[in-house]
Amino acid sequence: MSENYYEKADLEDFPNIGEYAPEAGEKFFEYYTVATGAGKLSEREKSLIALAVATVRHCPYCIDAYTGKCLSLGIGKDEMMEAVHVGAAMAAGDILAHATQMRKIIKKKEM
């Protein structure tokens, strides 16, 4: 057992995440392949979405995997950063939207 919760080498273990629950694991990979593969949206578009989600979700494995995939697909660094900003703006908007609750409570409680 390593001393760190996150290890770079863990990414190589990703194909084994179905261990102990192989049926569910198999179905997950089937779903994952369909969801991330080219459909109405191109592989390029989906990879940029995945990169933005990976950064918002703070997943080091996904950030590693999708940065590499975007580079492989010839996606520019500026395009990748724009995608990350979409994620950042959505996260900020999500937080600010929740301030609505705070504003509503303030308005209810203040004289």
Binding site: S42, E43, R44, G68, K69, L71, S72, L73, G74
Partner: peptide
């Protein structure tokens, strides 16, 4: 000829040809 500018593998040839 396309080859990656760094330590990663190239994407699908057909896709990259479209982008080129």
């Amino acid at each position: 000829v396309h080859n990656p500018v760094g330590a990663y593998l190239p994407g699908e040839q057909k896709h990259l040809e479209t982008e080129y």
